[in-house]
């Protein structure tokens, strides 16, 4: 009886390290692989687009008021950003096929170069806000380009996408979020 108990304890002792290892392995697997560590959860979703007063590409100024009135995509881009070029075709398609307003934030870029880039590759933007210093970018929580925000008609951020928009991102994420805005509540 005593021996049986002792044997049981011995078996437990033998398998305890294995069990601990398995538990740790599961924890680390979940921690390291299920989530892309480069993706920050956006702190801005559900909050109003930050106020700004910045020049517009091609002349003039714009403030936050210019964003109100209808849902919009606000796309943070730059000519130095190759991923921006790769998503550009999709932005052009969205603008042409859905009529959803697309605004640009030309982020830490050279305005002359940006103009040339838009002339070369097509221009989906209603207008472009020039954020030469990246200060609006900081207020938006931008940490790279491209990043795209979906705003509702009152200028509240409803969705944020980090990285390139392709057909799948549009179909699975941005379009449903946009449709949800248009739906009567």
């Amino acid at each position: 009886m005593v021996q049986g108990k002792a044997a049981g304890r011995k078996a437990l002792k033998r398998f305890l390290p294995l069990a601990l290892f398995a538990a740790l392995a599961v924890l680390l697997y979940a921690g390291f692989s299920l989530r892309d560590p480069h993706l920050l959860p956006s702190a801005l979703v559900g909050k109003p687009f930050p106020p700004f007063d910045l020049p517009v590409l091609g002349g003039g100024n714009a403030t936050r008021e210019a964003l109100l009135g209808e849902p919009r995509l606000v796309n943070v881009w730059a000519t130095w950003c190759p991923t921006c070029l790769s998503e550009h075709g999709q932005l052009l398609r969205i603008r042409a096929e859905t009529g959803l307003s697309v605004l640009g934030v030309n982020y830490k870029d050279d305005p002359a170069q940006a103009k040339r880039w838009l002339a070369d590759h097509g221009d989906p933007y209603d207008f472009n806000i020039i954020d030469a210093e990246g200060d609006l970018g900081v207020n938006l929580g931008v940490y790279g380009a491209p990043e795209t925000f979906l705003l509702d008609a009152s200028g509240v951020v409803r969705y944020k996408h980090v990285g390139a928009i392709d057909a799948a991102v549009w179909r699975d994420k941005l379009e449903p979020a946009w449709q949800a805005l248009a739906a009567p509540r």
Partner: peptide
């Protein structure tokens, strides 16, 4: 925000400069 494990003090990333 861009570099996973660098403080603002040690990072040379443009976003760290902005912050």
């Amino acid at each position: 925000p861009k570099c996973l494990n660098e403080s603002l003090a040690s990072s040379g990333a443009p976003i760290a400069v902005d912050l």
